[in-house]
Design a protein around this nucleic acid. Structure first.
Length: 482
DNA sequence: TTTTGAGTTGTTCGA
DNA sequence: GTCGAACAACTCAAA
């Protein structure tokens, strides 16, 4: 039987994997391969947290393949060279893979496809990551969408036609002469783990296809009920926790939608499900935007902000934000959660991002880069869109006057301060009413000696006013009159 | 081509 | 405590 390389990238699953299915359906012996080449995604090469996740996910994929009789070949180096070598070693006649949508990756993959085809190979790529690929969704005028609601109204129609491919029951064994590197040798785990994801992290997260399926079941049985409201409370398990699994393609949005539809939901859950699906819609929208506006990972989508006067970076303040020492409890709690667990609750992501972009008025790229390196679910499309949305520079972005008040947000979404207490142990002795804004309650703080900033790194009231005038006003500091 | 309606996630102020 | 208006126009998408 002829062989076909199945080049795994961020489709680290066997169920509903069209590249793998294509190889099997067309009578090839699939040769699963992963090529480690992080530099090829520069300047957005995978950050430390996603690399650690990837390490586990590759182990899981290899174990799943072995269960079916196959195995994962791991190579490292220039991707084209490694694929070419493996084609020669295995005598493969075809190469299949799932498409990705980051500009640098698209460019690389196009080169590889062209060259492999020129060598006489059958080369095909597939959609395994999106409900609707970016070029299939367009406005009546044939343009990409820039507003979420009409985008999703259009794109979500494709949900109706979704199908899911079953997991293969068995796979042919690979010849022994096909060598593989040990996953451990790729250097994906930090040498000295900093942050120290010691106890707990891998108990909460299970990278890999089984872990993704499990996370979906946990969500359906639990947080899906009441999702619309509960998702806003950072101390509760109100979200799906599917983001890292989706990023690495351990589960497809098609699988999620299909599973959700199979569940006999009571009518009252309808709005919750709709809301959850629209969150998948935001993921789709982010990919749509990054594909059609490929420079937005590094530049404002809205050209009005070309000349915007961001505040000059103060290294101490930026570090205070990064490490959760701003003196604003909800901001610090979120940044500590991120640093210690590689994840942050969505509501808190908005709060810390608004604080960085609007109170400190630092360029959103500083936030995007930090998130990129620390989030286990760091995804270029989602990260870019999220930061540009908050900064007001993106498509369908937050209005300039939408400036989160971190004190009000904490009072509203963490009323018992359970989240604050969890991540700010040094404030354990602070009474509840003072926790949201300790500097505003000197009488309650009297006598407490805390290893915590006595004042926020920036005054919330005056910085809000400054942001309003920087972002707006007839002078429109944002606009250079050409 | 022109017109029209709509647009994730908020805060503050004053009645 | 609650509620509506103001915060500004502007851009987008579709009729």
């Amino acid at each position: 039987m002829p062989a076909a390389l199945v080049w795994f990238r961020r489709d680290l699953r066997l169920t509903d994997n069209p590249a793998l299915s294509a190889a099997l359906d067309r009578g090839y012996v699939p040769i699963p391969v992963y090529v480690h080449a992080p530099d090829e995604e520069a300047p957005w090469s995978p950050g430390a947290a996603t690399r650690a996740w990837l390490h586990r996910s590759l182990q899981s994929l290899d174990a799943d393949l072995k269960r079916l009789g196959s195995r994962l070949l791991v190579r490292s180096g220039d991707t084209f060279t490694e694929l070419e070598k493996l084609v020669i070693e295995s005598g493969a006649e075809a190469v299949f893979w799932s498409r990705l949508y980051e500009p640098a990756v698209i460019a690389r993959d196009e080169r590889i496809k062209t060259t492999l085809k020129a060598c006489g190979l059958r080369v095909e790529s597939f959609n395994s990551a999106l409900l609707a690929e970016p070029w299939t969704v367009a406005t009546g005028a044939g343009e990409p969408y820039r507003v979420f609601t009409p985008f999703w109204r259009n794109a979500s129609r494709s949900i109706e036609a979704i199908t899911v491919q079953p997991v293969p029951v068995a796979m042919p064994a690979l010849p022994d002469n096909l060598a593989s590197l040990a996953i451990e040798s790729l250097g994906l785990l930090p040498v000295s783990p900093e942050p120290n994801w010691d106890q707990g992290f891998w108990e909460h997260w299970q990278p890999g296809e089984a872990g993704a399926a499990e996370a979906l079941e946990v969500f359906i049985e639990g947080a899906a009920n009441g999702y619309k409201d509960q998702r806003n409370f950072p101390d509760r398990t109100g979200t799906s926790k599917l983001s890292p699994h989706l990023h690495f393609g351990e589960i497809s949005p098609q699988q999620i939608v299909t599973r959700i539809r199979r569940e006999p939901w009571p009518a009252r859950i309808g709005p919750d499900i709709e809301h959850f699906l629209s969150e998948l819609g935001w993921r789709e929208f982010s990919h749509h935007l990054l594909f059609h506006f490929p420079n937005t990972a590094n530049h404002n989508l809205n050209p009005r902000f070309q000349e915007f006067r961001w505040e000059e970076i103060d290294a101490t303040r930026l570090a205070a934000w990064q490490r959760g020492r701003t003196g604003v409890p909800i901001v610090d709690a979120g940044m500590r959660e991120l640093w210690q667990t590689g994840w942050m609750h969505n509501r808190v992501r908005m709060i810390v991002a608004s604080f960085l972009c609007k109170n400190l008025r630092y360029h959103w790229l500083h936030g995007a880069r930090w998130f990129w390196d620390t989030l286990v679910d760091a995804d270029l499309a989602n990260n870019t869109q999220g930061w540009q949305w908050t900064a007001g520079t993106g498509a369908d972005a937050a209005p300039y006057f939408r400036i989160f008040n971190p004190v009000v947000q904490a009072e509203r979404f963490d009323p018992q301060a359970l989240y604050l207490r969890r991540w700010l142990p040094e404030l354990a002795s602070v009474p509840l009413p003072a926790l949201f804004a300790p500097w505003q309650q000197p009488e309650l703080m009297r006598g407490l000696r805390l290893d915590y900033p006595a004042q926020p790194v920036i005054d919330l009231i005056s910085s809000r006013k400054a942001a309003l005038s920087a972002y707006s006003g007839p002078k429109a500091a944002t606009v250079e009159p050409d």
